[in-house]
Design a protein around this nucleic acid. Structure first.
Lengths: 208, 208
DNA sequence: ATTATTTATCACCAGTCGGTGACATGCGCA
DNA sequence: TGCGCATGTCACCGACTGGTGATAAATAAT
């Protein structure tokens, strides 16, 4: 008999490859079915391998989540491009930062999900992932920081938190509900409208 | 023997009472453990009765969720008090509406949870509850609507959606993370600071 | 007093979960 | 060649899940 027929495509005794397959399957399950359907069995099914391997290579679910977190260490720096022009006013700087964050978050579904779980669920696994997300975000903001000062009499920290909260909430709502509070957020035009409104707020609040 | 000793407190063959016990246990489980731990068995355990009764009185989990939704029909009208003075500018009206919503949402943990699940999870049960929430909210807003017009050149619908999104996100983040984006939201002073920043935004954007 | 009906409980089902120990198989090394 | 280790597979465990049919017990109707 010729046993070289059909090597079964992937059962090729390659630890590194299997490791990566599991990791990517885990991220898929997480992004698709949420933390609800996330478990040893579902990840193993998705990866097409035995769950025993997850224990061997990651030490169980906990280690798997840790590995995903490590994989997320640079999500925002990878996604948000550097500003084209150096901002010359605090208002410009805030706008650049907010839109950079918006673009980066919009194109990473997994990070969106994590941001949503952060406020919906307080399970240890979520904490782990949200910590990784937060660290990456903090590093990115620190890198963007300039020496511009906000106008006097404005609580910039609170205002920025509000603007970021709004941005984040709109993105999360759009990806599950397709909009928020009567504002549709499906098409690019919808988002241009939202961006325009945000820009107006920033300019009016941070007007020198 | 005296069999009147110890009537076992609640196993008194009272359908209405058992019905209410189950409903309130369901809301407790939902608010405490989230949708994760919400199920026939856990609700029955919490209510201290047999799960069969949930099928009999509510037709299963689905009917139970429906009943909870009906219970939520007036959450915001019950919580948000009527404005003390009738607003005379659009800016004032927006501020009143936003702070009313904020107060109502802050004091109802279950509705907070539902709002969070809305954007984190898309399960049918969540959709059901979030629909009930949304209807109650819409009715309330319609009741508050006046005949004031926003300043020209301002996209009021988008701006209001942004402000509501920010408010909602800050509340949800505060109850699970204790704050957002470096802004602490634990004490009343923290919230006064957030409210002040929101009021400033509204006044600057909606300045006539 | 004797039925009927409602209310509540129990035992059990198939299925899934996370987790583990035993086993097969292929690869590199001696 | 054969040995040993790394890789992958399988069968099984106890616990839990949603769901259902049969049964006990208390109340209402006759």
């Amino acid at each position: 008999m010729d046993e070289s027929i059909e090597p079964v495509e992937g059962k090729q005794r390659d630890r590194a490859r299997t490791h990566d397959t599991i990791l990517s399957a885990a991220k898929d399950v997480l992004a698709a079915d949420g933390f609800q359907g996330f478990g040893i069995n579902s990840v193993a099914r998705k990866a097409g391998c035995d769950k025993q391997l997850i224990y061997r290579y990651f030490g169980g679910l906990e280690g798997l989540v840790e590995a995903i977190g490590a994989d997320l260490a640079t999500w925002i720096s990878d996604a948000a491009m550097a500003p084209a022009v150096k901002p010359s006013t605090y208002s410009q700087w805030a706008e650049t930062l907010l839109f950079g964050y918006m673009a980066a978050l919009r194109q990473n579904r997994l990070v969106q999900k994590i941001s949503a779980w952060e406020i919906a669920d307080a399970s240890p696994s979520v904490r782990q992932l949200s910590k990784a997300r937060s660290i990456a975000l903090g590093r990115w903001i620190a890198g963007q920081r300039g020496d511009l000062a906000p106008p006097a009499g404005i609580d910039a920290a609170a205002t920025n938190a509000i603007l970021i909260a709004a941005t984040q909430h709109l993105i999360l709502a759009s990806s599950t509900l397709g909009g928020f509070s009567g504002l549709s957020l499906a098409t690019d035009e919808d988002w241009q409208r939202a961006e325009a409104a945000l820009a107006t707020i920033i300019r009016k609040v941070y007007a020198q």
